[in-house]
Amino acid sequence: IRCIGVSNRDFVEGMSGGTWVDVVLEHGGCVTVMAQDKPTVDIELVTTTVSNMAEVRSYCYEASISDMASDSRCPTQGEAYLDKQSDTQYVCKRTLVDRGWGNGCGLFGKGSLVTCAKFTCSKKMTGKSIQPENLEYRIMLSVHGSQHSGMIVNDTGYETDENRAKVEVTPNSPRAEATLGGFGSLGLDCEPRTGLDFSDLYYLTMNNKHWLVHKEWFHDIPLPWHAGADTGTPHWNNKEALVEFKDAHAKRQTVVVLGSQEGAVHTALAGALEAEMDGAKGKLFSGHLKCRLKMDKLRLKGVSYSLCTAAFTFTKVPAETLHGTVTVEVQYAGTDGPCKIPVQMAVDMQTLTPVGRLITANPVITESTENSKMMLELDPPFGDSYIVIGVGDKKITHHWHRSGSTIGKAFEATVRGAKRMAVLGDTAWDFGSVGGVFNSLGKGIHQIFGAAFKSLFGGMSWFSQILIGTLLVWLGLNTKNGSISLTCLALGGVMIFLSTAVSA
């Protein structure tokens, strides 16, 4: 259960009878995928790494000078000259100064003066180019299975845990398959586009800190620079940016070097996208990844198990997540596992009318040892309800109150669905055939309105939902006002479609 501690969480529900669903994975976010007769899966884009970055340009932001020398000439005696002028490691300046009897010249006039100092770069920052084909995306998957609280967001041991898996995709191999043991396998067909235009970005490294910066900004930095990788004795261009020549006297000129420019660069980098280094690879934390999940090989585990009949206890007080759902960790005293956990939410304890829904599909106890633990997640209705676990006299209950409203949740879900469709863009549509167009249209309606429909009408039977949709269509056909007619027709059509397409 990876997503319960992530604030940016998206719930995606598969269409009834569908074998695939489109998701948008982004750094700092987590996606929970639910479908009829399929286990619930949490998917998170953990890291995006980039390798084989080529150094484009380096800037010196802290330097020192040494070996200063000057040469001067009297008027009419030609130009002052130093051998160091031809050495690229030196920074030199030529000027004219007033000369006369007082400073060793027989004539009054302008004399030539040249001053040089050896330039040494102490600290530099480097910009590297990123090729999209060198990106690698690491995705962690977790099935809502027989897990306890100690396994949440624990990325170790996934090789031997059938509840978890790690997959890596690249532009050259965008397809992967996550093996989930008894739950089958989940196929991923990803489109490795981060949403960032790397043709316009460089990877900047300064003092063990890293950013993504725009090329134009990078090339306009007014500091000494050299092109390409460091060859040991780089040729620094624009050395004068960190060196200041003071007022010249008759035979000498003082040279000083400016202080470190790291603070000024940090100020200019305010708002830039931060990154990290992992050995020789860069780690990015921006952008998104679009994936199509193929769920035809994914299956529920323990459908044929019998119900657990022994007593359950709450190991922890049920807690609310950031998303309005409830996490419950229970301990089973029996030894008759594997068995299914009898769990439901009810409005009252007399009729036990089921409300809400299970995020953890078909929760089971897989071990036959005593005191096995299991964590599950529920989506309670707004208002008061009861969490009921167990059967008969051994069942345990917990009162729950959820604040908020169904309308607010439906609106929030619609906005999130619209954002998801905007990110998917043209990849969500198939114009290759008439059937493809209608299929894409259905998927689009489901992406945007599916979660809201589930919130508003999830407790009704599909037949009642179709009746309401048919009534809206009838009202649309018999209303003389054009805008009201079109609105009723659209709402009725969407409702009829979703009542037959969205899983219960």
Rank of each mutant, 00 (worst) to 15 (best):
T309L: 13
D161Y: 07
N362A: 01
W217A: 04
S142P: 03
L376H: 03
C116E: 05
G28D: 05
E79Y: 07
Q85K: 05
V91A: 13
E62M: 11
G78H: 03
Q447Y: 08
G450S: 06
P171Q: 03
Q77P: 00
A333Y: 11
R299E: 04
S464D: 07
T88E: 13
V257S: 09
A63N: 08
T406W: 08
I43L: 15
C116M: 11
W462R: 14
G469M: 14
M460R: 10
Q350I: 15
V347M: 13
T414S: 05
V437D: 02
L204W: 11
P234F: 12
L180I: 14
T32E: 06
F438G: 00
E191M: 11
A319C: 08
E191L: 04
R416M: 11
A165I: 07
H399L: 01
S372N: 07
S440L: 10
L45H: 10
R175G: 13
G390E: 11
Q261M: 12
A319P: 05
T19I: 14
T353W: 00
A229N: 02
L489E: 11
D87G: 13
T366A: 15
I341M: 10
H288L: 03
S455K: 13
V256K: 01
G271L: 09
L424E: 06
Y158S: 13
T32H: 02
K209P: 01
A319R: 02
K246G: 14
E26Y: 05
S286A: 12
I4A: 06
E79F: 09
A117M: 10
S260M: 11
T313Y: 00
G302S: 13
E44N: 03
P234H: 15
I130Q: 07
G337E: 08
S368N: 15
D71G: 09
A452P: 01
S368D: 00
S483G: 07
Y90Q: 09
M460E: 08
A178Q: 04
T160A: 15
G150Y: 00
K283R: 02
D22Q: 09
C339P: 05
E177I: 07
H210I: 02
G106T: 00
E133K: 12
G104I: 04
A35K: 04
K251R: 03
V364R: 00
V50I: 07
P381S: 05
C190V: 05
H214Y: 13
G476V: 06
V167G: 01
A410W: 12
A176I: 06
L201R: 01
C291G: 01
V50N: 04
P222C: 10
E44S: 00
M421G: 02
G271K: 10
R416A: 06
G404P: 04
G187D: 08
V434E: 10
F314V: 01
D336W: 13
K118I: 01
K239G: 02
L491N: 06
P318L: 12
G78C: 07
G111N: 04
T32A: 09
V330C: 04
R138Q: 15
D230K: 04
P318V: 01
P132I: 04
A275N: 02
N208D: 05
C92G: 08
F11L: 05
Y90L: 07
G228P: 14
G458L: 02
L475I: 08
N371M: 04
S286Q: 09
V317D: 15
V213G: 09
A504G: 12
E412Q: 14
V355Y: 14
K301H: 14
A501V: 15
G18R: 01
D247K: 02
G127V: 00
M374R: 08
H323W: 13
L284D: 03
H249D: 07
G187P: 00
L188P: 08
N207E: 14
A333I: 06
P171S: 13
G436F: 07
K419L: 01
A501Y: 09
D98E: 14
Y203L: 10
T156W: 07
S455G: 13
L135K: 02
H399G: 14
K340V: 02
L424M: 14
Y90V: 09
R402Y: 11
W474I: 02
N238L: 15
T479A: 14
F314G: 00
P192D: 05
W101Y: 06
L186I: 15
I130S: 08
G263N: 11
